[in-house]
Nucleic acid binder design. Structure first.
Lengths: 127, 127
DNA sequence: CAGTATCCGTTCCGATACTG
DNA sequence: CAGTATCGGAACGGATACTG
C-alpha cells in the first residue's frame, strides 16, 4: 500500500484533513474533554454536555470509538452499564487541541470584534 | 460588556468553538497555508487549490477577511487586481495549526487503520 | 480578472417518540 | 440505562453560467 501526500488537503485521507474534520466536529472536543476526568457513562456525558440528543451523542461516540480515540466498555449488569474512556491516542490529542484552545483564548476577542465590526458595516451597506 | 465562559463549548461564541469552526472549515487552513508564501491574487489561490469554485472561494475569503485573518487589497488598475495576504493574526494561527498537523502526521495512520478495521467489522455484521 | 447569480444534492443536526 | 427509529429543517458546498 503506497501512500504519498502531495499536501492534497482536500484529499479526504490527507492526515491534516482527517484530523481537522474530527476536531472540527461540533461535539468531539467537548466529549474528549469530559472524558479527561475519567471514564463516564452515556448519560453522564449527555448531562455534562446538556444540549445533545441521544441520537447525536451515539453517533459521535461511535465515530470516536471507530477512530480509536475512545473506548467503549459494556458491563453485563442489570440495569445495563456502559462506560466510555479515553484511549492513549485520545489522550495524546489533548496537547495540540489545548494549543489551539490557548490561541483561541488569547485572540478570539480580537477576531470577534473584527467579525462584529464587519457585520455592522454590512448592515449599513444593506440599508 | 460582561463576558464569562463556563466552558459552554456549544455556545456559538465560546472561543474554542469559534476557532474550531473556522479551522475545521474545509478550505481555511489551505488558504492560510498558501498565503504563508506571500500575497496572492484571487485566481492564484484558486489554481493553487485546484478544486474550489469561485463562489466558495469568495465566501471563504470573505469570512477570513471578516475575522481579520487575511487582508484584501484592491488595486485601481485595468484589468483589476486584488491581492490577499495574511494579517499578523492570521500568521499567528499557524503555530497551533502546525501542532495539530504534526499530531496528524504522527498518528493518523493509526486512526485510519482503526477506522478501516471498524468499517470491515460493520460490513461483516451487515452481511 | 475577479468575481456574481442560481440551482441543487448531500450532509448534519435537532426534535420527538419508542425499546431491549 | 442506553440506546434506536423516523422525520424534518437548515446549512454547506458543488456545478454551471453569467458580468462589471
Amino acid at each position: 500500500m503506497r501512500v504519498r501526500w502531495e499536501g492534497d488537503a482536500f484529499d479526504p485521507e490527507c492526515p491534516t484533513r482527517v484530523v481537522l474534520d474530527r476536531v472540527g466536529d461540533k461535539w468531539t472536543v467537548l466529549i474528549v474533554d469530559i472524558l479527561e476526568a475519567g471514564p463516564k457513562r452515556f448519560n453522564e456525558i449527555r448531562l455534562a454536555i446538556g444540549g445533545i440528543t441521544p441520537k447525536v451523542l451515539t453517533s459521535t461516540l461511535r465515530s470516536l470509538v471507530a477512530d480509536g480515540l475512545i473506548e467503549r466498555e459494556v458491563f453485563a449488569e442489570v440495569p445495563p452499564r456502559v462506560e466510555y474512556s479515553l484511549t492513549d491516542l485520545g489522550r495524546s490529542l489533548q496537547a495540540p487541541v489545548t494549543a489551539l484552545r490557548r490561541w483561541a483564548e488569547r485572540n478570539v476577542a480580537e477576531l470577534i470584534d473584527n467579525r462584529d465590526r464587519q457585520a455592522e458595516m454590512d448592515d449599513a451597506q444593506a440599508s
